[in-house]
Amino acid sequence: MSEHRHTLRGAITVAVAVGVAMGTLTAGGLPQRQDTAPVAAAESATPADTAEHARLRAILRRLTTVDGGPGALVAMRDRRGSTVLTSGVADVKSHAPVRGDSRFRIGSMTKTFVATVMLQLAGERRVVLDAPVERYLPGVVRGHGNDGRLMTVRQLLQHTSGVPDILDHLKPQDILKNPLAHHDTRDLVNTALAHPPTFKPGKGWRYSSTGYLLAGMIIERVTGRPYGDEIRRRVIEPLGLRETYVPGDASAIPGPHPRGYVRPGANAPLVDLTAINPSVAGAGGEMISSGADVNRFLDALLRGGLLRPAQLREMMRTRPTGNPDGRAYGLGLESRPLPCGGLYWGHSGDMFGYETVSGATVRGRQATVMVNVDPGGTDAQSDDMKAAVRTALCK
C-alpha cells in the first residue's frame, strides 16, 4: 500500500472506530515523547555531519510530537559508513525507545523488490517487458473492459496499464474486523477487475497495486515458485539482508520492531495494529525490512549489483506522474528532484501501522525514514518524512 493513504484515511477512520467499539482492536494511550541517542555512528562526526544531524533531529522530533507519531528513525548510509538517528517510542505502554535496528512493514517498497525480480527475468529472456500480460496469465485479466491482451508487463510495473486499483475497492472495515484473515491474491485481483479500467492501456498514469499483484503472479507462472521465494533467492540472500522478509501469511514481525499504530483522527487515541496478515497487500506491499537493509538494497540496485545495465536503464526510464513535486515513475522505482540539485531514486510505502520513505543517489548515498503509525491523522507526517530524506541526501 502507498499512494492511497489519503483516499483511504476516512474509511480507515470509520473502520478503526468500529473495531475499537466491537473490541476487535485495542486502543492505546498517547506516548511520552523522548529522543534517543544515535546508533551505530560510522565515524567521528564532522561539523557538516553535526549540522546535518541537528536538522534531522529537528524533523524527527516534529514527527514524534506535532505530527503525532509514537516513534521514528532515519537510517543514513554512504561510502564512509552508516548512521541511525531515532526519536520517540516503540511502544506507547512501556515507553521503550525505538531501536536503530528495528524492522518495519515497508508497504509499497515491496514493489521495487518485485520489479527487480521481473527485470532480472527480462534479462534472462524469460519475460518480455512489452509482451501482453495474456502471454503469462492467459484468461486472468478479463471483464468490465479489462483485457490482458491489450496491456503489457511494462505497463503493470509503471502504473500505465489502467488496471483498476484494488485499494480503491477494498473495505477497510472488513480487514480490520479480522486482521489475521488470509487474502488470496486471485480473489483480490478479481475484486479489482470487477470494475472498469481507469484508462486505456498506455494512455495515462495512475498508481495501481493490482498491477503488482499481477506481476507477482507472472513471476510465479514463469519460475514455478512464489514471487516471495524468488525475492529471497535473487535479492535477499545474495545481499545478506538479514532483516528483510516476505512474510506471506505470518502476522508477526520477526526480530526487534516497534508496535504499529493507527490513529483514527487527529486527536484520537492510537490503536495497536501490529499483528495483521499481510497477504491483504501481497506483492503490492507485504514485505518487512529495516532502514539499514533498505539502504543496502537501493545501493546495490543503483550500482548495478542486481540488474544488468540494459535492465537498469529500463527501470530508470521514467514518465511524469503529474505530481507538482516533480515525481516521475520508472519500473517500480521513482525519481524526485533534490533541492541541492539532481535526483534521488527510491519509493515510499505504508501498511496499517507503519510508513516508510526511502531514497538514494547514484553517487552512493542512501536514506530511509520510518514511523510506526499509519494513518497518522494528518498529512504532515508524509511531508516531513520526505523532508528528512532530502535533508539526509543533500549533505
Score class of each variant (00 low, 15 high):
1 M>C: 08
6 H>N: 15
6 H>G: 14
14 V>E: 10
16 V>I: 08
20 V>R: 11
21 A>T: 13
30 L>K: 13
34 Q>V: 03
45 A>N: 07
46 T>F: 03
48 A>V: 06
50 T>P: 02
56 L>H: 02
56 L>C: 03
56 L>Y: 02
59 I>R: 02
59 I>S: 01
63 L>A: 01
63 L>Y: 03
65 T>D: 04
66 V>Y: 06
70 P>Q: 03
70 P>D: 10
70 P>I: 11
71 G>M: 05
72 A>H: 04
72 A>W: 05
72 A>R: 03
73 L>M: 09
74 V>P: 15
77 R>C: 13
82 S>M: 10
83 T>E: 12
84 V>E: 09
88 G>F: 08
89 V>H: 08
100 G>F: 06
109 M>H: 11
109 M>K: 06
112 T>G: 10
113 F>D: 05
114 V>H: 02
115 A>H: 03
118 M>P: 04
119 L>S: 15
119 L>W: 12
121 L>M: 06
131 A>H: 04
139 G>A: 13
141 V>F: 09
144 H>L: 02
145 G>Y: 00
146 N>S: 03
151 M>S: 11
154 R>E: 12
158 Q>E: 11
159 H>V: 00
160 T>I: 03
160 T>Q: 13
163 V>E: 02
165 D>A: 00
167 L>N: 10
168 D>G: 10
170 L>I: 12
172 P>G: 07
172 P>F: 04
181 A>P: 03
182 H>V: 15
184 D>S: 15
186 R>A: 15
186 R>S: 15
186 R>D: 15
191 T>L: 15
198 T>Y: 07
203 K>N: 14
205 W>F: 02
205 W>K: 01
207 Y>N: 04
214 L>H: 04
218 I>V: 06
221 R>D: 03
226 P>T: 00
230 E>S: 14
230 E>G: 04
233 R>E: 12
233 R>F: 05
235 V>H: 08
236 I>L: 14
237 E>V: 14
239 L>S: 09
240 G>V: 12
240 G>C: 10
244 T>C: 05
254 P>C: 00
262 V>K: 02
268 A>Y: 08
275 A>T: 07
277 N>S: 05
280 V>Q: 06
280 V>F: 09
282 G>N: 13
282 G>C: 12
287 M>Y: 12
288 I>E: 00
289 S>Y: 05
294 V>E: 01
295 N>H: 12
308 R>Q: 10
310 A>R: 07
314 E>Y: 07
316 M>Y: 01
317 R>S: 12
318 T>A: 11
318 T>R: 08
319 R>V: 13
324 P>F: 05
347 H>F: 09
349 G>S: 12
350 D>H: 09
350 D>N: 12
352 F>P: 03
368 T>N: 01
368 T>Q: 00
371 V>Q: 05
372 N>W: 06
372 N>C: 11
376 G>E: 02
380 A>E: 15
389 V>N: 08
390 R>L: 15
392 A>D: 14
394 C>F: 13
